[in-house]
Simulated scan of single mutants.
Amino acid sequence: MTESHRPASRTRRRMLHAGAGIAGATALGTLGLGAARAQSAAAANYPNKPITLIVPWPAGGSTDRHLRLLGQILGEQLGQTVIVENRPGAGGTLGPATMVNAAPDGYTVSQFPMGMLRMPHMQKLAWDPLRDFTFIIGVTGYTFGFTVRADSPFKTFDEYIEAARARPGRIDYGSTGVGTSPHLIMEQVAINAKVELNHVPFKGNADLQQALLGGHVMAQSDASGWDKFVDAGQMRLLTTFGEKRTQRWPEVPTANELGYGVISASPYGIAGPRGMDPAIVAKLHDAIHQAMADPRHEEVLAQLNQEVWYRNSEDYRAWAEQTYREDKVLIEKLGLAQG
Rank of each mutant, 00 (worst) to 15 (best):
M1A: 15
T2D: 15
E3Y: 07
R6V: 15
A8P: 00
R14C: 06
H17G: 03
G19C: 12
G19V: 08
G21D: 10
A25Y: 01
T30R: 14
L31Q: 06
L31V: 11
G32L: 14
G32N: 08
A38E: 12
S40A: 13
Y46F: 15
T52W: 02
I54C: 09
P56C: 03
S62P: 02
D64M: 04
R65E: 11
G71H: 00
Q72Y: 09
L74A: 09
Q80V: 11
V84K: 09
E85P: 02
R87Y: 07
A90R: 07
T98N: 07
G106Q: 03
Q111I: 12
M114W: 05
R118P: 00
H121V: 07
L125W: 05
P129Q: 09
L130F: 07
R131G: 07
V139I: 13
V139A: 10
G145P: 01
F146I: 06
T147K: 05
K155I: 00
T156S: 11
D158S: 09
E159V: 11
I161V: 15
A164T: 01
A166C: 03
A166T: 06
R167T: 12
I171P: 00
Y173W: 10
S175V: 08
T176R: 10
G179S: 07
G179W: 04
T180G: 11
T180A: 14
M186N: 03
Q188D: 01
A193P: 05
V195P: 00
A206H: 08
L212R: 02
H216I: 06
V217R: 02
V217P: 00
A219E: 03
D222Q: 14
S224F: 05
G225I: 08
D231S: 14
Q234C: 05
Q234W: 05
R236F: 13
G242H: 05
E243F: 11
T246Y: 08
Q247H: 12
R248T: 06
T254I: 04
A255D: 02
Y260E: 12
V262S: 13
I263N: 12
A265D: 15
S266Q: 10
P267E: 06
P273I: 14
P273F: 14
A282L: 11
H285Y: 13
H285A: 04
D286A: 13
A287P: 03
I288D: 01
P295F: 01
E298F: 02
Q306T: 10
E307M: 09
E307Q: 09
W309V: 15
R311I: 04
S313Y: 02
D315I: 00
W319E: 13
Y324T: 08
E332A: 09
Q338V: 15
